[in-house]
Design a protein around this nucleic acid. Structure first.
Length: 834
DNA sequence: CGAAGGTCAATTTTT
DNA sequence: TTGACCTTCG
């Protein structure tokens, strides 16, 4: 550990933006490149002190990385391919800035997208510079930095600095109210959809007057713009912000207050941006305001990213931002990191060849020095259907676990299954449950999004922030207090009419006889409780108070009385919530944290296979990666193709690239010939991406099953992965029999553990993966075709289910009573008369 | 208020 | 086919 960083001056940054004047000259000869007009003795001493450090943190960097770290003056774009040491460059660069005394910790603005990335950066900088990282208040996500700016200058945006941050759920409920208030049908105009539109506009940096006429008219009978404006007005009265505002308000503030912006120009001596290819327009505008400076202030901005890993276009990310960097920041130095430290030559070769099919790239080719004849090529496997796919993947995992071809036993933690869409996960989960194989799903319900956590948080919010009407409405009748819709609506209208918060309105109303005695009493009790808690805010510790609130409100009792299976888990979660407050000084501090940071921790002690989407795999790496579902329509996804056209396809291809480059040593790709889509079995074609892989680095694995192969549908889209074996009988194979046998006991267990077999869920969404599938072109096509050539009672053969009789016909969909498989619904194209 | 039944839609997800 | 969400009835 180095000591040299202990001397870095530390300035508390919570005051005004005024900083001690930055040091005019860089500190003595720290970086080999930068001299300085200092005395020889001073230089020598500094060099002596610094050398140790320099060696410590610069050694081990390759020349490009080192250049990216040491080029401190002027704009720098680091194009960092997958596994090229991007984070290392970023963190070392920060360390270097500090070590050379170019800036105080508080003068470095370092932004990331996710909290996870921010946390990781903090940790790693911490390792390099020790405690100095504590003085880096401007290291965080775009949003957390946005909050910080906005809390300081809230009044310039018409807010108080104690504004609340609403999450998606709150936003939707609020919009729903607005839609109803406008007298619109909230079914015809779903609040969720409008929330999505607003989000999209905000991603583009558009305020109500800015949105295109067409967009403005597309919702709410042409009143989209008014609705958006009404929403913003409502946020202001609520003293609240949504996520988009955390960027848009600062942008507006900077534009309106050039002097203030100038202070920040002077303040942030160095700006660093991670994952630049993921920035959306609003973030881009925000960044440009801060980073593009008048000539007299240096533009020390460093963006790190990889255009080949831009997979969030659908969410507003503009790859263009990274492609345009050199134009935005004239004189920018572009440094490419192409030396890969993660993967084998085969994996890199496969990934590189694939991604080369994209146009409009900045163009990087990853390479590695490691050449090991034992490294296996990327394996492509065919399976008959998704069940078979899951079975085979499970077998391969068990094989590796027992000891792979190299005889080494592999940990489940080193393996991951990366799917295109979350519905694919289910098949693997089912299979692993029957095998008793531990797995963890990344992307399950997030802690903070759970019902009970949101309820509890609403109580805390309302205590801290009595004008939080959304919180009020959420919990006023939770647990049930006999304050139903009628009462709440009345309170709402009363509050709106007088422009006061609902809690205050409630206080007024209980003084009157407007409510029925029962409701009045109930409301009175609620208000008394809140008054009580608010007083205790100053006197009681926040954890103690939190417990009291949950007890006295009857909220914990509500779950104790709940006899469903979920009750105990929810109580545990509530305990966990209170426990997690320990790390914070106050309830307010805690609320701030939760509104922005929402991760669940994964249990590192558990050895388990990870199952996640390709999107959530970005930034991770695994020894062995399984990539199932490489079929046309699923991957590339039909919808991406329909909606995104050429660029949609390219984004899908980047997703494939991300998937491949997650693998360190082994990568297994799968495709199936039949997949169940909306309950119907459909024949599928191998993904075009398979054809884009280079033969030199890929093995088409002799399928471990006899019946892997593509039952093609005519001459269209022939691929070298097509196999002329579409009609092999599957019923006699052991795999089929086992799959059938397993069907009965492979029940699904969303939450967890069954018979000594651990399952973990980490991530988003209240209810796990939804059963989504592709709206296949094939379905659409055959639907509009001529009526079925079959009639009820016909004896038919189906490739998967065997013989059966047609029970009923709906267009091209047949319901067939199969002899062995029972009743199934299938498309008529897949059966033939016998 | 809670259970039951009908309807609609069905990539990817962070803050 | 599954599931989420909403309306309706007891």
């Amino acid at each position: 550990m180095t000591n040299s960083f202990d001397d870095i001056p530390f300035f508390d940054d919570d005051g005004s933006p005024d900083e001690p004047a930055p040091r005019k000259a860089p500190a003595p000869a720290a970086a080999p490149a930068s001299g300085g007009g200092l005395g020889i003795a001073a230089r020598a001493m500094a060099a002596r002190d610094q050398n140790r450090t320099v060696v410590d943190y610069l050694s081990g960097l390759n020349p490009e990385q080192r250049e990216a770290v040491e080029t401190l003056d002027g704009p720098v774009l680091v194009l960092a391919g997958a596994g090229t040491g991007k984070t290392r460059v970023l963190t070392t660069r920060i360390a270097h800035i500090l070590a050379t005394g170019r800036a105080y910790p508080s003068q470095i603005l370092a932004v990331t997208f996710t909290n996870k990335a921010a946390r990781e950066m903090k940790e790693r900088v911490g390792v390099l510079v020790g405690g100095a990282v504590e003085g880096m208040p401007w290291m965080g996500t775009f949003h957390s930095v946005g909050v910080k700016l906005l809390r300081r200058h809230a009044e310039l945006a018409g807010l108080r600095s104690d504004f609340t941050i609403l999450d998606t759920d709150d936003v939707v409920r609020l919009i729903k109210q607005l839609i109803q208030a406008e007298g619109l049908d909230d079914k015809r105009w779903p609040a969720k959809q409008f929330a999505g539109m607003i989000d999209g506009w905000k991603n583009k940096g558009l305020t109500p007057p800015d949105i295109a006429e067409g967009d403005a008219r597309a919702f709410a009978n042409g009143r989209g713009r008014e609705l958006y404006a009404a929403y913003q007005a409502r946020l202001r009265t609520l003293n609240a912000c949504d996520f988009g505002d955390l960027l848009l308000h600062p942008i507006a503030i900077f534009r309106k207050n050039p002097d203030l912006l100038k202070e920040y120009h002077a303040k942030f001596r160095y700006i660093l941006v991670d994952e630049y290819q993921d920035t959306n327009t609003a973030q881009y505008m925000w960044l440009r305001l801060l980073a593009q400076r008048p000539k007299d202030i240096p533009q020390n901005v460093c963006c790190v990213g990889d255009d080949d890993q831009s997979i969030y276009g659908w969410r507003g990310a503009e790859v263009d931002n990274i492609l345009r960097f050199e134009k935005d920041f004239l004189g920018a130095k572009v440094i490419k990191l192409e030396r890969n430290y993660r993967s084998t030559e085969h994996i890199l070769g496969a990934a590189g060849h694939l991604i080369a099919h994209n146009e409009g790239r900045l163009g990087k080719t990853l390479f590695t020095d490691r050449v090991d004849p034992d490294d296996e090529k990327v394996q492509v496997h065919a399976a008959w259907d998704s069940e078979e796919e899951a079975r085979a993947v499970g077998e391969e995992i068990e094989r590796l676990q027992r000891g792979g071809s190299d005889g080494r036993k592999h940990a489940l933690n080193d393996m991951a299954i990366l799917v295109r869409a979350s519905f694919q996960m289910r098949e693997f989960e089912d299979r692993f449950v029957t095998l008793g194989l531990n797995y963890r799903v990344i992307g399950g319900p997030r802690f903070y999004e759970r019902l009970e956590i949101r309820d509890a948080m609403a109580y805390f919010r309302l205590v801290c922030q009595p004008s939080d009407d959304l919180a009020f409405e959420r919990i006023v009748n939770t647990p049930k207090r006999g304050l139903g819709d009628t009462t709440v609506r009345y309170l709402h209208d009363y509050a709106r009419a007088r422009d006061i918060p609902m809690l205050a309105a409630a206080s007024d109303i209980i003084e009157t006889d407007e409510l029925k005695p029962k409701a009045r009493k109930a409301l009175f009790d609620v208000i008394q409780s809140f008054r009580n808690w608010q007083q205790k805010l100053e006197t009681t510790s926040h954890m103690e108070l939190a417990e009291q609130i949950l007890e006295e409100s009857g909220y914990t009792d509500m779950w104790k009385a709940d006899k469903s299976a979920e009750g105990p888990g929810r109580l545990d979660n509530l305990k966990e919530l209170v426990r997690s407050m320990e790390a914070f000084e106050s309830m307010r501090g805690f609320l701030e944290h939760v509104s922005l940071v929402m991760d669940a921790d994964k249990n590192e002690n558990l050895d388990a296979v990870s199952i996640m989407t390709l999107h959530s795999a970005k930034g991770l790496e695994f020894d062995t990666v399984f990539l199932p579902g490489w079929e046309e329509g699923l991957f590339p996804h039909q919808r991406a193709l329909d909606e995104g056209g050429r660029s949609g396809l390219e984004e899908e291809r980047r997703l494939a690239y991300v998937g491949l480059t997650r693998a360190k040593h082994r990568c297994h790709i799968w495709f199936v010939s039949n997949r169940r889509i909306h309950g119907l079995w459909q024949s599928t074609m191998p993904s075009r991406f398979l054809d884009e892989l280079p033969a030199a680095h890929v093995d088409v694995a002799a399928s471990d099953s006899n019946y892997g192969g593509y039952g093609g549908r005519g001459g269209y889209g022939q691929s070298r992965f097509d196999k002329a074996d579409p009609f092999s009988n599957t019923y006699s194979t052991p795999g089929w029999k086992r799959a059938q046998a397993n069907k009965t006991d492979a029940t699904r267990d969303n939450w967890g553990t069954r018979s000594g077999h651990a399952v973990e869920r980490i991530g988003y969404g209240e209810s796990g993966p939804r059963g989504r599938t592709i709206e296949g072109e094939l379905v659409a096509r055959s639907t509009s075709e001529t009526p079925s050539q079959f009639s009820v009672g016909d004896r038919v053969f189906h490739i998967k289910f065997g013989n059966g009789n047609i029970a009923s016909i709906e267009g091209n969909k047949l319901t067939i009573e199969f002899d062995r498989a029972g009743q199934k619904r299938v498309l008529d194209g897949f059966v033939e008369r016998v």
